[in-house]
């Protein structure tokens, strides 16, 4: 018994339709890949390859040139968590993020709100507030190094002038991490300020106008309009600052070299030490992998928690 002819035609038709759809999809996939090819190539060379190589190295011991010698499996990872220097660097890193991110964002927000007013000569202040964006980490660190100098540093001269005791800014464990944090906050304010100011400028004026018609005060507007409308920008700035803080290296290398007694040794600095002073590329790679996972987790958590409060237009 033959099949129902109508159904058969229909099936053939469906089949052909599927095939055409499939080939169209294939075509658009290839087209898409062609467009993506340059960035895939660049990412592979500069991001993915180093990343996989890092993971590969983290399972080995290496010689001074970085070529692998002995396969040790997970040993590099296990040793890491009993290594007091690395554990301290994790603690320091979290403290450092805590010391730098909230103050940077708050200060920049404050400055951005001030600089958002339309006054004569406000351009000058905007330039000043954002000027640190143009200073390299190395230059800024050297500049602060002189301020912190125990003998001829300006900060200690001030303290002495007011009858205070000189402080070992970079040598006293109680101060060292704070000193580096202050430096970092100062350096990051420029960038954060600029992004936040941009966010403020793009808020629709009509919102303020209608609020003014209703007679709301300055702080009411700030709380109910400015902050909610700025929340996507704030969220972006917080995420980026945090990632930045996690990866701080330059100022540590120049200001303290991780001292006193590893009090300012952050994870990235610890990786550098391990790889380029101790020539242990294996354990350095393992630390790098842990840093990557840490930042990834922190960012995901931030997206899960922070996003709920963000108001997108």
């Amino acid at each position: 018994m033959s099949m129902n002819p109508t159904l058969e035609t229909n099936e053939t038709y469906m089949y052909q339709f599927e095939r055409v759809k499939k080939s169209a999809r294939m075509k658009s996939f290839i087209k898409g890949m062609l467009f993506l090819f340059p960035s895939i190539l660049l990412f592979s060379v500069f991001v993915f390859y180093p990343m996989f190589k890092t993971i590969y190295l983290s399972f080995y011991l290496t010689d001074a040139k970085g070529s692998t010698t002995v396969f040790v499996g997970l040993e590099n990872y296990l040793n890491m968590f009993t290594n007091p220097i690395f554990l301290q660097s994790i603690k320091n890193t979290f403290l450092f993020v805590f010391y730098t991110v909230p103050p940077t964002v708050l200060i920049s927000l404050f400055l951005a709100i001030l600089a958002n007013e339309n006054l004569r000569g406000i351009g000058l202040f905007r330039t000043i507030y954002s000027s640190t964006i143009g200073i390299s980490v190395a230059a800024a660190s050297v500049f602060w190094l002189y301020l912190f100098n125990p003998t001829m540093g300006l900060l200690n001269k001030f303290l002495e002038a007011f009858g205070g005791e000189p402080v070992g800014w970079l040598t006293d464990p109680a101060w060292a991490l704070l000193s580096v944090s202050v430096t970092t906050i100062w350096m990051n304010i420029g960038f954060t300020f600029l992004i936040l100011l941009g966010g403020l400028q793009s808020i629709d004026r009509s919102l303020y106008e209608s609020a003014e018609v209703e007679g709301s005060g300055y702080f009411y507007k700030l709380r109910r309009i400015t902050i909610p409308m700025l929340s996507p920008t704030l969220f972006f700035v917080i995420t980026v600052s945090m990632i930045n803080s996690f990866q701080t290296f330059g100022q540590i290398d120049i200001l303290t070299q991780g001292g006193p007694a590893n009090e300012t040794s952050l994870i990235v600095y610890s990786i550098y030490r391990e790889a380029f002073v101790n020539y242990q590329f294996g354990s350095a790679s393992a630390q790098a992998v842990v840093l990557f996972i840490l930042i990834l987790v922190m960012t995901v958590i931030q997206f899960k928690l922070g996003e709920r409060r963000v108001h997108y237009q």
């Binding site: 991001v47 290296f249 990557f292 930042i295």
Partner: peptide, 19 residues
Amino acid sequence: IMIFSLGILFLLSACAGEN
């Protein structure tokens, strides 16, 4: 914004190899 932040994350982690 999510994609942008992720992109920055990758770029910054690539920068760690600056030394």
